[in-house]
Amino acid sequence: MRMRMSIPAKIVLYTFLVIVVIITFIPLFYTLTASFKTNMEIAGGGVNPFPATFAKLFTGDATIADLFDNYIQVFSGNGGWVGTKGNFFGYTLNSTFVSLLTVFFVVLFTSMSAYVFQRGHFPGQKFLYWLFLATMFIGAGSITIFPVLRITTKVGINNLFGLAIVQFGTAGASNLFLTMGYIKTISTELDQAARIDGCSFFSTWWRIILPLSKPILGTIALITFRGSWNNYLLPSLMLAKSQTATTLVVAVVKLQSMGGAGASQYNLMMAGTMLAVMPMLILFIAMNRTFVEGITAGAVKG
């Protein structure tokens, strides 16, 4: 239902929203313009949002290639640090691989475990359920990072695959509860119909529950993908020894400390940041509707 509002109330509301939008967009806008500037321009400060190259384009003193110089550098291998190459194309592939793998694990096992908890009956079910719940109250990240690193080092999975495994393992129980809530809204009549129509407990999940929980799983996939894509702490530690097999976000930060001659190459960082942010931005704009529907579908019976 659409809310009816008086005009003054609308003005207040929209003013507030516009301010929020501006505050949210300023850093993004700054990053975008800075990614076209030279390092000297950024270091020099000032309020001019437009890069000097931008004006030169019109006078003919610069080409389009000059404008995208920072981007070309981070891709061509010169955007890096002494001795190695800043291969942003490779980093993008790494990030994509890790994120997709994490999403695959999370979605598969969240759906399976939510189904078993919601529809199954087995000894120890309550205990396991509370165990899952308990994990929600233990702050993952900083507290668990040391034991996690010890384990991954011992097992020898300090690589992209291991990263996906750990990210899936620490994904948290909230996904489980969201999915359980969603499965609860699916009539058990369907389970019964499926059993009479020849489905086992497993094939009922595969043929009925899994396809029907697509909206909530889509939302979880999006959240998980974003989390994995933007994750910094864990990959930076797990992949510390490797310079080539690192993720996009980690690589961007590396541009700061490992910049040539010790100086931070902010211009390249900004270009790298834009590259790291763009895919998520596009994904979210495209999937906006699914995302919101999924969240609300879990909360309200559809």
């Binding site: 009539s187 009549e189 369907l190 019964q192 119909a193 499926a194 009479i196 009925i208 396809p211 029907l212 697509k214």
Partner: peptide, 13 residues
């Protein structure tokens, strides 16, 4: 056996 349900029990997808 086959069963027909009160809420039809059709697979919505």
């Amino acid at each position: 056996v086959a069963m027909v349900f009160q809420n039809f029990g059709l697979y919505p997808h």
